[in-house]
Design a protein around this nucleic acid. Structure first.
Length: 485
DNA sequence: CTTAGCTTTGT
DNA sequence: CAAAGCTAA
């Protein structure tokens, strides 16, 4: 709580309306339109719900292990940031359709507000909640905040959604990006609010963060692995923004070097949880360069990657569920060869292919993989092993700290060849060529698979022959095309 | 963000 | 005759 409140005295505050801000994938206080609007209207209380999909399948995809860990830590940080502003953050688990009315009633809130979500199942839930809460007499307002381009803001000449990245990028990049909003002014909550919050706690309508069971594994496991690599939370995210310049400089040439720790920004989990908004990132990157500076090419390349995320959400909003449905429908007839043993070798980084194993171990140990290596390990599972891509997608969903509902399925479909703008099927990444090209000194492979270069270390022989399995994949593709015609 | 095979270029 | 460039799948 701030010592010298700048805005309203407690008396004034008590008569102003109370808005419940439902945080979801927007765990920040700056550039948060829903929070800003709520704060301008009066008193704010924050809420985060550990949601499960309802019986009709509405709601967000259940968090994976790594994102549960991140969410827990990021929520701690958000609670601290909000506390500085005099805003309480409360937690609950269960269906949002039950939690929201209970918390709103208990706080005598007059309004509920949130940042929009865009996955079909989440939209369906949010639309339903909007109706139900309005019917119960609450004001409800949803705000943008997680995307640069709302999925309906750009469309092709024929009025449909984009299916190819480049034209999407051309259209989307033409839209202006507004300036980020500052954090809201601190508030002095009405005197009766603490009593209402206490009652909610006593009734069990809200619970301490720890009781959400987001850390269901042994916490020591996280401390020994992923926690060594990351500091979740919007405060740390703000600091990461300061170091952004370093990763943007030279980005267009160095971004493909997985052994270089500064070749990418590593901001993906910040975006996933909205610790930073894409708008803040564009703003941070666009601030410095004089026009015509060669650094502009790096910036353009970097911002372009941000628009891949926008494109993923654009597709996710407009298409059938992409975690199960191939965008190219002919792929429903693709002759996959599921092999649990091969899947397990891949997951554990024991395929005998050094770059693949390095990537999969980086994933397991740190909850993150360099983008180029994601493409290599994905191509290896879906093409060399012919194992169904959705098992790889699910593994990434469980283990990546940045796993989001749009990027993950869309990118997997891209590497598997069934995505809308997928590379031609015959483009099968050769992990050995990729290693020679992007990890020539072996820095990356040695860091994650030190025994790969040691004789007699017990490092396995490759579980498939790269050349032969590539040919086999091309045959499978031909088979699918014949089946389709 | 492929590969293989053929053609062109450079020494 | 090797390296580099082009092209079709």
């Amino acid at each position: 709580m701030p010592e010298t409140p700048s805005t309203p005295s407690p008396d004034q505050a008590s008569v102003r309306p109370l808005t419940l801000v439902w945080f979801r994938d927007d765990l920040r206080v700056t550039d948060h339109p829903a929070l800003t609007a709520a704060r301008e209207a009066g008193t704010v209380v924050g809420l985060w719900i550990r949601e499960a999909r309802d019986t009709e399948g509405r709601g967000p995809r259940p968090l994976g292990g790594a994102t549960r860990w991140w969410a827990h830590r990021s929520l701690e940080a958000l609670a601290a940031e909000l506390d500085e502003l005099g805003i309480a953050l409360v937690f609950a688990a269960g269906p949002a359709a039950e939690v929201l009315p209970a918390v709103a009633t208990g706080l005598q809130a007059t309004a509920v507000t949130w940042s929009r979500r865009y996955a079909p199942a989440s939209r369906a839930l949010d639309a339903h909640l909007k109706d139900a809460l309005r019917a119960a007499g609450l004001q409800v307002h949803s705000h943008p905040g997680s995307l640069l381009v709302e999925p309906w803001e750009v469309s092709t000449g024929s009025g449909g959604h984009y299916k190819v990245f480049t034209p999407f990028w051309k259209a989307a990049a033409d839209l202006p990006v507004g300036a980020p909003l500052p954090a809201p002014e601190p508030q002095v909550p009405p005197a009766e609010l603490p009593g209402r919050l206490d009652r909610l706690h006593r009734d069990g309508a809200v619970v301490p963060l720890e009781q959400l069971d987001l850390l269901d594994e042994d916490p020591r496991w996280w401390e020994d692995t992923v926690a060594r690599h990351w500091e979740p939370g919007c405060a740390a995210a703000g600091e990461a923004l300061v170091g952004l310049e370093e990763s943007v400089t030279g980005y267009s040439t160095t971004r493909d070097v997985p052994g270089d720790d500064h070749s990418t920004s590593r901001l993906s989990p910040r975006l996933r949880f909205g610790e930073l908004s894409p708008r803040q990132l564009v703003h941070a990157v666009s601030a410095h360069p004089p026009l015509g500076d060669p650094a502009n090419e790096d910036r353009r390349a970097w911002v372009r990657q941000l628009y891949w995320r926008e494109f993923s959400w654009h597709l996710t909003y407009h298409c059938p569920p992409l975690e199960t449905e191939p965008l190219r429908p002919e792929f429903r007839a693709f002759p996959w060869e599921p092999d649990d043993g091969a899947l397990r070798s891949w997951q554990r980084g024991r395929t005998g292919v050094p770059l693949v194993d390095a990537g999969m171990r980086q994933l397991w140990q740190s909850g993150w993989v360099h983008n180029r290596v994601r493409l290599v390990v994905g191509s290896f599972l879906a093409k060399n092993l012919l194992h169904p891509w959705w098992d790889g997608e699910q593994w990434f969903w469980d283990t990546l700290v940045d796993a989001d509902e749009a990027n993950n399925p869309v990118s997997w479909q891209w590497v598997a060849g069934c995505g809308a703008d997928a590379a031609p099927y015959f483009r099968v990444f050769n992990p050995e060529t990729q290693r020679e090209r992007f990890d020539p000194d072996g820095v990356y492979v040695r860091r994650w698979v030190p025994e790969a270069v040691e004789p007699l270390s017990g490092y396995p022989e490759p579980i498939v022959d790269l050349k032969e399995s590539r040919r086999h994949a091309l045959d499978a593709y031909e088979e699918m095309k014949n089946a389709a015609s």
